[in-house]
Design a protein around this nucleic acid. Structure first.
Length: 358
DNA sequence: GACTCCCGCCAGAAG
DNA sequence: CTTCTGGCGGGAGTC
């Protein structure tokens, strides 16, 4: 999914309510954007499915989709029944690094991509490994449970990401991904189902700007390109931006998928537990005050240099960041923002430097 | 007509 | 038992 101009700003809400139904407004990508905007805040730590569904004006089922995909890159993690914790973007680099290592170990990026994995960094999940290598896998006796796990959005999303991280190909089509990720059958029906799920995942990852939809050169065949850490550093500014927004707005006032008019919802959600603070100081998500730019990409700065590798090279990332900061700085005329941005850049620099050292 | 992917049914897990 | 979770595929919207 390309840029999504239909993501609403606060002014648009009323107008939007009057608009007729548009499928795009209901897309998972938009849902994720709104999800991030609502939950990417200092004071949000835990949230519930019901609460999220209500705030986003969608049914629970959709929240499960979003949460499962976000969980695959550790943006959220499941804490218990009907309870998730919001980790934010700051765990993504670590998660990607983890996924890449694991992907390489499992042979992603080679011709024999298998769809196996165990649950990385899934601290509260203790189930057995899902890894079914061709050696030990008995296709015919793949249990229902195994099949279910193998098809989960969580796993599929991780494997999809691994393909990008480990493959030498710049572009990946959903078809090829589905083929690669279907361990056993090449049954067209299974393929269709897998591709449907990959669309879901691709939409979410696109919305997170980890990947970008494009085309196979010379054809109209859609394919996805990895953006990864580059866009992640860029997203830092978006992240701040969204924090901005949420600080000055009431929850629920900017949501596209609203079926019912909702008014003031208390910003401090029922599920937010102030005492619960698992992040240390430098992991804190910075907060800003006033300036709001559009969703993602405040400048064209980072659309260049797509060639660096995703989420693995820390020093490269630092360079990215430096380049970004110098590119961004002149773009903001607002004094307050410039100050804040300096603070953010510093915070991010510090964080990446720390990561680099580790 | 092909592609995209929302929607909600319903099976299985969890409490 | 009830409630939660989420795979799944029909079929509608979009290109």
């Amino acid at each position: 999914m390309e840029k999504m101009p239909w993501i609403v700003s606060s002014q648009d809400v009323d107008a939007l309510a009057l608009q007729s139904y548009s499928r795009k407004e209901k897309s998972l990508g938009v849902l994720v954007s709104n999800f991030v905007r609502i939950y990417n805040r200092d004071d949000v730590d835990l949230f519930g499915i019901d609460e999220a569904a209500a705030k986003l004006g969608v049914e629970r089922r959709r929240i499960y989709d979003v949460v499962n995909i976000l969980e695959s890159i550790e943006v959220v993690s499941r804490k218990g029944k009907n309870l998730y914790s919001w980790n934010g973007f700051l765990h993504i680099p670590r998660s990607l690094h983890h996924l890449k290592e694991e992907g390489l170990r499992e042979g992603f990026g080679t011709s024999s991509i298998c769809s196996n994995s165990d649950k990385v960094s899934h601290d509260d999940e203790s189930e057995e490994s899902l890894c079914l290598t061709p050696d030990d896998q008995d296709n015919s006796s793949l249990s229902k449970l195994d099949h279910k796990k193998e098809s989960s959005l969580w796993l599929l999303s991780q494997n999809f990401v691994k393909m990008f991280l480990c493959s030498h190909d710049d572009l990946i089509t959903l078809d090829s991904a589905a083929k690669a990720l279907l361990s056993d059958s090449q049954d067209p029906m299974h393929m269709r189902t897998k591709v449907r799920r990959l669309y879901d995942i691709a939409n979410v990852l696109s919305s997170m700007e980890l990947i970008e939809k494009t085309h196979i050169p010379g054809t109209r065949k859609p394919a996805y390109k990895w953006l990864g850490s580059k866009s992640l550093t860029e997203k830092g500014s978006t992240l701040f931006n969204s924090t901005n927004e949420s600080k000055k707005r009431v929850f629920g006032t900017e949501i596209t998928n609203f079926s019912t008019k909702r008014n003031k919802t208390d910003c401090s959600s029922n599920y937010v537990q102030n005492g619960y603070n698992k992040h240390d100081e430098e992991e804190k998500k910075p907060a800003a005050k006033t300036y709001v730019f559009g969703p993602f990409s405040p400048t064209g700065a980072s659309k260049k240099n797509n060639n660096n590798n995703a989420g693995t090279n820390n020093s490269g990332r630092l360079q990215d960041l430096e380049a970004l900061s110098s590119t961004y700085k002149p773009q903001y005329c607002n004094q307050d923002v410039t100050g804040l941005l300096g603070h953010y850049t510093e915070a991010w620099n510090k964080w990446f430097a720390e990561l680099d050292r580790k």
